[in-house]
């Protein structure tokens, strides 16, 4: 890694921090303009207890003061306390959930990239064969199915379907924590983007195969495997890597729904729960971490870029 790359990473990290700060500030201010608070629904509390609660969280102060207090906390890495579950600190909670979401997102990306790229290559090399048609047809379906539909189908298939077919030996145990619980949600999350990657890889391969340097590679008498993988694929990957950034973002945001469906204790589930509970402190924390996660994932993708294309240097 060159010095330039390190400087670039430093700059990007600084930008991510800044983005996270801005995002959380906007959400903080937005949320505090909303009517009502987390305690309104708790009927058992009387007015005095409510006032005590508000005071405990500093919610009785004017909001600019609250903002400054909150910001001081954030700058020390403290996102505050859950409004619903007293005593629960948000930073470690959200950190843990972010790790869960990142794991799910990582495997979804692995699935997406492997499936999309390998099928894309094969379809391009075997253009206009049955294989190409079938793969392209499936891609159109994958492309047009939202992840919650895919997820529902997969749940049906792997839970009831597998249970019935194997007499109850193999079936999906919906939940989180065991390695075997990763694939189904990861596939649900990754199927749509893999269709996008498939189409892009195929198109880009088809274009590259016609390039002069691929003809040169043939003219040199290289083996077809080397021509396809070393000469065509590496060049075909360049536009595919470009789209990995936006795809990563969509996988991360897509995990909100998937986590909820599969009951995965990640950021996405917390996001929905905290909104339903009006636990604004957590809402802000979740938003902040989403911003960080998206930023980091995109940074990672951008770092892959120069590895594939030597013309790009940071």
């Amino acid at each position: 890694m060159t010095r330039g790359t390190l400087i670039y990473i430093g700059q990007r990290l600084l930008l991510i921090t800044l983005t996270a700060l801005i995002v959380s500030s906007v959400v903080f201010i937005g949320v505090h303009q909303l009517p009502g608070n987390a305690f309104l629904t708790e009927r058992r509390t009387n007015a005095a207890a409510q006032a005590a609660l508000l005071h405990h969280y500093g919610l009785d102060l004017p909001w600019p003061v609250q903002y400054v207090n909150w910001l001081t906390g954030v700058l020390h890495g403290d996102l505050g306390e859950s409004l619903v579950n007293r005593g629960v600190r948000i930073t470690p909670l959200v950190l843990r959930e972010a790790a869960t979401s990142a794991t799910l997102g990582f495997w979804a990306m692995v699935f997406t990239v492997t499936l999309g790229m390998s099928l894309g290559i094969v379809a391009a090399v075997k253009q206009n064969t049955l294989l190409d048609y079938v793969a392209s047809f499936c891609a159109v379906i994958g492309y047009s199915m939202p992840s919650f539909v895919t997820a529902t189908f997969l749940v049906l298939l792997t839970v009831t379907g597998f249970y019935a077919w194997t007499g109850g030996t193999i079936y999906e145990n919906i939940g989180w924590g065991k390695p075997e619980q990763i694939p189904v949600p990861a596939i649900s999350l990754g199927l749509l983007p893999s269709a996008i990657i498939f189409r892009l890889t195929r198109a880009s391969m088809l274009e590259v195969i016609r390039q002069d340097y691929v003809r040169t590679a043939w003219a040199k008498g290289l083996r077809s495997r080397i021509v396809v993988i070393r000469h065509a694929l590496r060049n075909a990957l360049i536009p595919v890597v470009t789209i990995l950034g936006p795809i990563t973002t969509s996988v991360i945001t897509g995990s909100i729904v998937i986590e909820y469906i599969f009951g995965i204790p990640g950021l996405g589930k917390e996001f929905i729960n905290s909104i339903a509970n009006r636990d604004y402190n957590i809402v802000i924390g979740v938003f902040t971490f989403y911003a960080i996660l998206v930023g980091l994932a995109n940074l990672l993708v951008d770092l892959v870029y120069p590895m594939i294309d030597p013309r790009i240097r940071y």
């Binding site: 002069d212 340097y213 040169t216 003219a219 000469h231 590496r234 294309d309």
Partner: peptide, 18 residues
């Protein structure tokens, strides 16, 4: 490439950029 090899018209595009 061994018995007969060939060089092409456009050197800008005939070498693999990566």
């Amino acid at each position: 490439g061994n018995d007969v090899s060939m060089i092409f018209q456009d050197p800008m595009t005939s070498l693999n950029p990566v």
